[in-house]
Write a protein that binds this DNA or RNA. Structure first.
Lengths: 258, 258
DNA sequence: CGGAACGTTGATGTATCTCAAGTGGGGTGG
DNA sequence: CCACCCCACTTGAGATACATCAACGTTCCG
């Protein structure tokens, strides 16, 4: 063993924390202590690997929190006729409540192979009860999710197809950058055009034509599931994208009503 | 003063509670004690009257909770070009957080004249902290709102215009019945066809034609801002409406992650 | 009685859907 | 290593739901 190897080993724990997108996300939303980060690393250490196109819920009946560590998942609703509406994307670092307290289920499916952690109900309740920085950060995520959902409503309800994708790509770019999963101008986007259609309320044929239009407008390239943003300003302008809804304003309040 | 007058006075407090839609809504979502109901009546006693077309936020900078007691309001998002997307309706009994912790505002506007109560941040925080039935019920409302938003996404993203309205009318009927503001087959629906268009992502002209289609299908009548449901089963079938997302399943969990 | 806001109707344009037939690439089995 | 296959992507043509523009009717209120 060389000296450099032992140095690497010493640095291993913080490096793992940096690689854990759940920690990376939450530390932007609250002042996490070293213990908080350690705790988050511990409770998400037990992971499951699932393939693309799998349903994650209802899975573990006693589970409290489902955390995506790698890959893309989504929440969706199926219509009786079979058509599907994706209601949110879950990218690494995102989580959702694995309970179903309402009389209707909102399934979670994978859009790519995923690494997922389940945090038990008892564990997460204890953390929430303690009311520390983690609890605060998790409350912030629910506000951001709510705002994101409302933005999607504007997107689908009021914007033309190319504007919808411009907005979506800007949102994904921002979210993925926040957890270190986007390069300067590109990121991996594993969903199919079929999935994109179910996200935007469009047919997959029209998705294809819209993407071609965005390519022709010199805004993006998309090849082999890698999206490259050629003109970020242009894409933001077309999608009317303002990242404000994805970030907390100033110091987060000590309490949230949720 | 007659005897009957004093009897009426004796009965006044419970009668007021029954008339308070905030209490009526929350008591369906948690086991409120008599003290809880009294407390809710007290904290919403200080009301403001606002006309239609007014903005409610940002209004009281220190406010914690905005509660609609009479009338319809909505949350909406304006696009730079001026077009509007309504992201949720607020009917009597509904509330929202009057804070704006995110870097983007989501205004609340009235769709009719409204009676509104502001509950101070300190008051509501104390209630949330105490963790009683009221806190529990309020947490449930956020779950229901989230589920409702996702249903709207399906509505706008995947359903034809007549199906959208069928779903919306079923939802409103269910919500208004829960607070005693719908008759057996009709309720007051004060928004204009313009507002309905901004809700469903449709032009107001198409709203008008869609409503005519629903009338022609013998499903509803709509005159003078009163919607009458002629065929509830038919309307539910057309809108694929399942009220499950508006109700808690079984006994609400003692804790919610939110 | 007049005006403003809301609702209705018609004509025309267009974004998006549906149906249908390819193309391309990456994995698998022979 | 090649052939094949499957799945995603692409392209074309025709249908349609919805938007836009413009005019007119109606109701309500001052």
């Amino acid at each position: 063993m060389s000296v450099s190897a032992s140095i690497q080993q010493l640095a291993a724990a913080p490096a793992l924390e940096r690689a854990n997108p759940f920690i990376r996300k939450l530390e932007r939303l609250g002042e996490l202590s070293a213990e908080d980060r350690m705790l988050l690393a511990t409770i998400t250490a037990d992971v499951i690997r699932v393939e693309a196109g799998a349903d994650l819920l209802p899975g573990e009946p006693t589970a409290g929190l489902l955390v995506i560590l790698e890959g893309f998942a989504c929440r969706y609703i199926l219509r009786p006729g079979g058509s599907r509406q994706i209601t949110s994307y879950m990218v690494p670092g995102d989580h959702c409540d694995a309970r179903e307290p309402l009389g209707v289920v909102n399934p979670v499916g994978t859009l790519s192979a995923c690494t997922v952690a389940f945090v038990s109900r008892e564990t997460i309740f204890a953390i929430i009860r303690a009311g520390g920085a983690i609890a605060q950060a998790i409350r912030m995520t629910t506000l951001i999710e709510d705002a994101t959902l409302r933005q999607w409503l504007v997107n689908i309800g009021r914007r033309a197809s190319d504007e919808r994708f411009a907005h979506l790509f800007c949102e994904l770019y921002t979210r993925l950058r926040a957890v270190g999963l986007a390069n300067v101008d590109s990121f991996r986007m594993p969903m199919t055009q079929f999935d994109l259609g179910d996200t935007m309320g469009l047919s997959y044929v029209h998705v294809n034509r819209t993407l071609q239009s965005l390519r022709q407008q010199q805004l993006i390239t998309l090849k082999g599931r890698v999206l490259t943003i050629l003109d970020l300003r242009g894409l933001q302008a077309l999608g009317e994208f303002d990242p404000g809804y994805l970030t907390v304003r100033g110091r987060p309040a000590a309490f949230s009503l949720r």
